[in-house]
C-alpha cells in the first residue's frame, strides 16, 4: 500500500527522532547532548507542523509553536547556561558501558513496536505507524535517565521523555487538548527551573554533580 506524501514525510521524521534518541543514548559529551536534544525538538516541531498541515488541525500549529519556543530555544539555552555556570563540560560517565546500553536500547525498541502494534491497528490517524517509535523514544529516554550518573544528562533524559510523549500524543490522536498541552509545557519548564536550583544545591554540598553522592543521604 502506497503511503501518501505527508505520511511518508512523517515516517521519515519519526525515524530521525528515533535515530537522535539513539545518538543521545550513545553521546558522551554534555554540550553535544544538549544540541541533540534541541535537534530532536526541531524534528518534533517539523513533524507536528506537517501533521497540522496534512490534517488541517489548526490547534496543532499552536502546539508546534510552543514546542519550538520551549524545546528548541528556551530549554537548550537554559541548559547551555547551566553547563557554563557549573562548568561541567567534561565527559559523561555512564553506569553501564555504551555498547551494552545500545543493545538494551534495541531490545527496548523491539518491545515498543510489539506493544504498539495493537494500538496502532485501532488508531485511524495517518500517523499511526509512528506510535511504536514514540513509545520507543520514551523508553530510550528513560533508559538514558537510568544509565547516566550525572545530574544534567538525567534531566535531558527527562525532557526527551516528554518529547516522546508529545510525539505519541500527536501520532495517536492528533495531539492532546490545548489545555493539557499547555499544562505539560508549563510543568516541564517549572521542573527545569527547580532542577536548575537543585543542581546548584547538589554541587554546593558535594562539590560535584555526580548523583551517586546522594546515596550518602540515605539513613541506615
Amino acid at each position: 500500500m502506497a503511503l501518501s506524501l505527508p505520511s511518508q514525510f512523517i515516517n521519515l521524521l519519526a525515524a530521525m527522532m528515533l535515530l537522535i534518541a539513539f545518538a543521545m543514548l550513545s553521546q558522551r559529551r554534555v554540550l553535544t547532548l544538549i544540541n541533540l536534544f534541541a535537534l530532536q525538538g526541531l524534528t518534533l516541531t517539523l513533524s507536528t507542523l506537517l501533521v497540522a498541515w496534512a490534517t488541517s488541525q489548526p490547534h496543532l500549529y499552536w502546539s508546534a509553536l510552543i514546542t519550538f519556543l520551549l524545546k528548541v530555544l528556551l530549554l537548550p539555552w537554559i541548559l547551555h547556561r547551566l553547563v557554563r555556570k557549573l562548568n561541567v563540560k567534561w565527559d559523561i560517565e555512564t553506569l553501564i558501558n555504551i555498547p551494552m546500553t545500545m543493545i538494551v536500547g534495541i531490545v527496548l525498541v523491539i518491545l515498543a513496536f510489539n506493544l504498539a502494534l495493537p494500538i496502532s491497528a485501532l488508531a485511524g490517524t495517518i500517523t499511526r505507524s509512528t506510535l511504536g517509535i514514540a513509545l520507543a523514544i520514551v523508553l530510550l529516554a528513560f533508559l538514558m535517565m537510568i544509565t547516566r550518573s550525572k545530574a544534567i544528562p538525567q534531566v535531558i533524559g527527562f525532557l526527551a521523555m516528554e518529547n516522546g510523549l508529545f510525539f505519541a500524543a500527536t501520532s495517536a490522536t492528533y495531539g492532546m487538548p490545548m489545555v493539557v498541552e499547555l499544562g505539560i509545557a508549563l510543568d516541564v519548564l517549572v521542573g527545569m527551573v527547580i532542577l536548575g536550583v537543585f543542581f546548584f544545591q547538589i554541587r554546593e554540598h558535594f562539590d560535584s554533580l555526580d548523583i551517586r553522592h546522594l546515596e550518602k543521604l540515605k539513613e541506615d
Binding site: L115, L139, F142, I146, L214, E215, L217, K218
Partner: peptide, 23 residues
C-alpha cells in the same frame, strides 16, 4: 538503595511489566 538510578529502574521495570499486562 538511595541511588536515583535504582529508583528509576524500579519505575522503568514497573512500566514495562504494566505495558505487557495491558496488552
Amino acid at each position: 538503595q538511595g541511588r536515583i538510578s535504582v529508583y528509576l529502574l524500579y519505575s522503568f521495570l514497573t512500566l514495562i511489566v504494566l505495558l505487557f499486562l495491558v496488552r
